[in-house]
Measured scan of single mutants.
Amino acid sequence: EVTIKANLIFANGSTQTAEFKGTFEKATSEAYAYADTLKKDNGEYTVDVADKGYTLNAKFAG
């Protein structure tokens, strides 16, 4: 089991951190699915991958 950390950075400057656990593939998929649920209210996002894929920095356009 691994933990994927998602740093969510919103256009207004606020941030949120979420963690997803499971296999690498499952946890990564859940992190992206969570970011997708936030698109409606926060706009499209881009992701910078860090820490060999164990940290995802998602920046929302607003």
Rank of each mutant, 00 (worst) to 15 (best):
Y34Q: 00
A58T: 09
Y32D: 01
K59V: 15
A61H: 14
G53V: 02
L56P: 02
T3D: 02
I4D: 01
D48L: 12
G53T: 01
A6M: 15
S29D: 10
T55H: 04
D41E: 14
A58W: 15
T55N: 03
T3F: 06
Q16C: 15
T37W: 12
T46L: 09
A27F: 03
E19R: 07
L38F: 15
I9Q: 08
A6K: 00
K40L: 11
G53D: 06
S29V: 10
N12E: 05
K39N: 04
A61W: 14
Y54G: 05
E1Y: 14
K26Q: 14
V47C: 06
K26H: 12
S14A: 12
V47T: 06
A35N: 03
K52C: 15
T23K: 06
S29Q: 14
F20T: 00
Y45L: 05
Y32T: 04
T17K: 10
A18V: 15
Y32S: 02
A35V: 15
E25G: 08
A31G: 02
A61V: 13
F10V: 01
K5P: 01
Y32W: 08
A33M: 09
F20W: 05
T46K: 10
I4E: 00
T3Y: 05
T15I: 14
A18R: 15
K21V: 13
V2N: 03
S29I: 13
A6R: 00
F24A: 05
N57S: 07
F24Y: 10
K59R: 12
T37Q: 12
A58C: 15
G43E: 04
L56R: 00
E44H: 10
K21P: 03
L38E: 04
F10W: 04
Y45E: 02
K52H: 15
K39A: 12
Y34P: 00
D36F: 02
E1D: 11
E44L: 10
G53E: 04
A31Y: 04
L38H: 14
A6S: 05
D48T: 15
A33L: 09
N12D: 15
E30W: 07
G13R: 02
S29P: 00
I4C: 04
A35D: 02
F10E: 00
S14P: 06
T15Q: 12
S14Y: 13
Y54P: 02
D48H: 13
K52F: 14
Y54C: 11
A18H: 14
Y32N: 02
A31T: 01
A61F: 14
D48N: 10
S29K: 14
T23H: 07
E30G: 05
N42P: 02
V49G: 03
A27W: 05
N12T: 08
G62V: 07
T46P: 02
A58G: 04
N57R: 03
L56K: 02
A11V: 09
A33N: 08
A6F: 14
N7A: 05
V47S: 05
A58F: 15
G43I: 01
E25A: 11
K5H: 10
T15P: 04
V2F: 05
A31L: 08
I4Q: 00
F24M: 10
N42L: 09
F60K: 00
A61C: 14
D48Q: 13
D51C: 07
A6G: 03
A35M: 15
D41V: 12
Y54W: 07
K52Q: 14
A11Y: 09
E19P: 01
K39L: 07
D41F: 12
L8P: 01
G13T: 04
K21W: 10
L8M: 13
T3G: 03
G62Y: 07
A31M: 08
G22I: 03
F10P: 00
T3C: 12
G43L: 03
K52P: 03
F10K: 02
V47N: 01
N57Y: 12
N42V: 04
K26A: 12
